[in-house]
Amino acid sequence: MQKYFTRMGDGSGVYLDAEAIGQDLKEGTADAARRGKIPELAKDELDYLFEVVTSPVNIASVERGSEVVTSSDSGAFKINYQADISMDRATAVQVHEKVLAADSLDLGNIDYSYKVVKAILNDEAKVMENVQLNTIMPVLYGAMPNLGLYTRPDGPVDNWSELLPLGKIDEARKAQEEAIELAVKDMYYISGGMFKAGADGMNFDTCGASGDADVIAALRAIEKVKKDYPGLGVEMGMSGEFIIGMHGRLEYGGTRVAGLYPHDQVKLAEKAGVNIFGPVVNTNSNMTFPWNLARAVTFIKACVEAANIPVHANVGMGVGATPMSPVPPSDAVSRAAKALVEIGKADGL
């Protein structure tokens, strides 16, 4: 029986026959549909994904004219800090623009959290000013709400990760509510500074990393920023496919935030004034690439259908069917991108 080369979710190679690939595609879409209460992919869509997975080419791509645009997270430090090349961030932005053909980029501090940037805003603003003088593409400022940093011993409020195991639910909720207020203030302050520095927009990235309170903080900050700086574009990127209820009772516009999947998350983002939404679908490194691909495309398709704003699917390592590896294999990366654009109908990555 013919076997096809494909990948596991960690990027390692594996040979599977047609039956196994078809079965994994079916199970992947079924898993997304069951968790998100969204439709499974249709048979013709699964057949197309089968063709994408089993195509013998190294790099798969979309048809001419179906290309999309790209935004980013990581604060322009993929080349310098991550790839370990001696280069400042302002230069790295120009490399992304003129060498890697990026459509936009975000500038950010290596300690990628708004709370950390508060103390160095003046210096970060000067880098943004230089970048804006020398680049043509849109450049945003990016960081995470990262509510956990507001807890003791690093921050001023009680630590809910310590309180919850002790059964102190009310105290844990109160601490999160206090942290939200502090984080909103910081995110608004930094957005104002970056507006004056000429940023094209703000990237509120990895929202939800500390649970539902983290998302609420971002949404409230975005609401304030869009009210006072309407010319500042806003991208909101998520940390995971599902918002964890560390608080459990927080609502935004009458909707409980805990437990939402991408197609519901985007509606809250729209309400807050977000211009570009970045949903995440987690890659399961123990499952195959076909399983992860069908699952990611199912979630993204539902999110795009629900959205009135552009959706940029997250496709970094370990999300959006991209294998969980610091050097993701190009065959899998390109197939994930193609499928998310062609079947998921993503407006960008």
Partner: peptide
């Protein structure tokens, strides 16, 4: 886009589906 080596992620994604800045 997201984290991962710039060749494996960013360059590949731009070649595969990107408009090209």
């Amino acid at each position: 886009m997201g984290s991962g080596d710039p060749f494996g992620n960013e360059a590949t994604q731009e070649v595969a589906v990107g408009m090209g800045g």
